[in-house]
Design a protein around this nucleic acid. Structure first.
Lengths: 153, 153
DNA sequence: ACTAAATAGTTCGATATCAAACCAATGGAG
DNA sequence: CTCCATTGGTTTGATATCGAACTATTTAGT
């Protein structure tokens, strides 16, 4: 059955709603995290520290920008802020004079751990209304969606 | 089994990942929508127009701010931009001198329809890699998550 | 009635992010 | 070798958003 005059397609509407919900949740949770993060960390800055703890450091800014889906300029800014706080160290790449390498400082690891501790209470009540099983159920789906968006640009 | 020393809880990590994915998808899709929207519409502006088409107009700015989970100041800004483009009309509330009412202009409805048309191609390829069935599956879960976040503030 | 608290909307200063332009270095094609 | 396209990183200007302060109006408590 084709779509009616003027009415948007059912499927399209579905995707719209999906992106809408995702957008609002991101906004909501982001603001909320922001407020409790220590050391004046932004969510982006924390994510970066967390990323380095989980996946290791020594990445180039360019690769980080791709991983986080932000522009190079934005990554430059974020890295500068973290470096100013002493949480990371940025060194020139030995093999490519254009590149740099980003390393996690001990204080950066500590700041990340402190941030996680601060975020805990925020998440503590979540499982009541939103069970981990649900989270586990939709996570792979969202990952699939993300990777599709990554690939089709 | 208690969590190990220094290691973050499995459940906590799960929620982290979830918020992380959601954040990146929101960022990605938002930027993408932004680029193709006509009339220099931002995603926020389009969402507002779309909201009025779907749920009717005549809302107060305050209620809209709550619905979209933005600050009142942000809503003021967004409404002013839309009003400047002639897409909405803002009138004082007859019964409450503090309030205003927001109405959708004909050109606003047209702009929304044009925006949807412009967004279509962006979504056209999505069903291949990300079937509507998956979207339909996770949407209610995300809605539940959103409403929990709404309620517990 | 009066006053205090709550609510609606605006404004202001700060900041994260984007897009685009830019420079430097690399690497491949001929 | 020599170009020229590609890549890494920074800078700049614009803008959306936030939090907080402010004014005006309404509502509630006594």
């Amino acid at each position: 059955m084709p779509s009616e005059r003027g009415k948007i397609d059912e499927t399209t509407a579905l995707y719209f709603q999906l992106f809408n919900e995702i957008g609002i949740i991101a906004q909501l949770s982001g603001n909320r995290f922001q407020r409790v993060l220590p050391h004046d960390l932004t969510v982006a800055q924390f994510s970066l520290l967390n990323h380095m703890v989980r996946l290791g450091d020594g990445w180039t800014p360019a690769r980080l920008a791709v991983a986080f889906q932000v522009t190079k300029g934005t990554m430059t800014n974020t890295l500068q802020k973290l470096a100013a706080k002493g949480f990371i160290r940025i060194a020139p790449d030995a093999h490519d004079a254009r590149s740099k390498r980003v390393f996690l400082a001990a204080s950066g690891k500590a700041a990340r751990d402190a941030a996680i501790k601060a975020l805990m209470p925020e998440l503590a009540a979540l499982p009541e209304g939103f069970p981990p099983a649900l989270a586990a159920e939709i996570l792979p789906v969202l990952e699939r969606m993300r990777s599709w968006l990554d690939e089709h640009r």
